[in-house]
Simulated scan of single mutants.
Amino acid sequence: MEKQNLPVIEVRNLKKHFKVKNKGILHAVDGISFSVMPGETLGLVGESGCGKSTVGNVIMRLHKATDGEVLYKGSSVLDSKGNESMDFRKKIQIIFQDPYSSLNPKKTIQSIMEESYRIHNLCSGNERRERIEEIIELCGLEKYVLDKYPHELDGGKRQLVGIARALSLGPEFIVCDEPVSSLDVSIQATIINLLMDLQKKMNLSFLFISHDLSVVRHISQKVAVMYLGQIIEMAQTDEIFANARHPYTIALLSAVPKINFKEKTSRIVLTGDVPSPINPGEGCRFAPRCFLCRDICKTQKPDLKEVEPGHFAACHFYEESREKAREMEAGRT
């Protein structure tokens, strides 16, 4: 298969477990698979603690994978060494969630931007300064910012610096780890639109990690929903929002504020306790909170299977989920 037809990033059965002293093994990421094609954005959503950011950190090799594979255009990222590893690091970058703690407070923005060029021995002197100025301006910042320290900039500008730094080596794939969650709504819109413009100009691929469904719907072509370390539903964005099949996804979507006030619906409120990710049981991890839960759900884990063309869900009773949800939203149960 030609490389241009391969996914930019392919994740196969990826696992990341942490040992918790005197308690057992925390299954932060537990056997997930997905792919991101050139120019595509995959939105990875789920509540806090489900393992979204850990996925991004393992892809970036900030955490060592417990098991599984991460492939960049068919070549292993996790097993790469030497020059091959350095090449991967140029092509795969990350935008961190916190635009303040991710920037060295003791360095100017110029020095922060130069660091990646020094590590990879790319250009020097005036050429380096010119390239940095071009990237800074491409990200909507003025040149004077280069002489400032991070604390002298507001949150929006700091995050734009983070984006510029991620773009400095000409990457093809960027992990966006909740890049707008700590910013004002107006600044969020500016940065999201900037990312979409840069994607078109540079043919970038994104793994966009977020808990904000409205942002994910705006920027993503495909959505994967995580729950306690596992992907429980995945499909094209429009399909997820119009025809969700997993009870957890349906409950998440019911919580999204609706503009049409004439539409009388009730939010689906989940009851029960969230299971511990430490030594989880064999059944469905959503079972204690699920409105479709039956005995089989407590003992047998449902596989992530294709329930419709291009639409995957991990639920024993996915065929009943939509109708049951309509009844709950209408207040009939």
Rank of each mutant, 00 (worst) to 15 (best):
G82C: 03
S111H: 14
K64D: 15
N83C: 06
S75R: 13
G82W: 03
S35W: 07
S35G: 04
T108M: 05
G46K: 12
E114L: 00
L71K: 05
P38N: 12
G39L: 10
V36M: 10
A65H: 02
Q110E: 14
K106V: 11
L103V: 13
D98R: 12
K106T: 14
I112P: 09
G74I: 00
T54P: 06
G43F: 07
I59D: 03
I59C: 07
Y72F: 15
K81A: 02
N104H: 10
K52V: 01
M113L: 14
F88A: 02
K73A: 04
K52F: 05
I112H: 10
D87W: 11
G51L: 07
C50D: 11
R61A: 00
V55G: 07
V36R: 14
V45A: 08
V77A: 06
P38A: 04
M37I: 06
K90H: 05
F88D: 08
P105S: 11
S85P: 02
K107N: 14
I112Q: 11
Y72C: 01
Y100E: 12
K73G: 03
A65I: 00
E40G: 08
H63V: 02
G74K: 01
K81I: 02
L62I: 04
A65K: 06
A65L: 02
T66E: 11
P99A: 07
G49R: 12
S35M: 11
Y100P: 14
G46H: 11
D87N: 13
K73P: 01
M86E: 13
S102N: 03
L103P: 12
E40L: 08
L71S: 00
C50R: 15
V55T: 14
K91F: 03
R89H: 08
V45R: 10
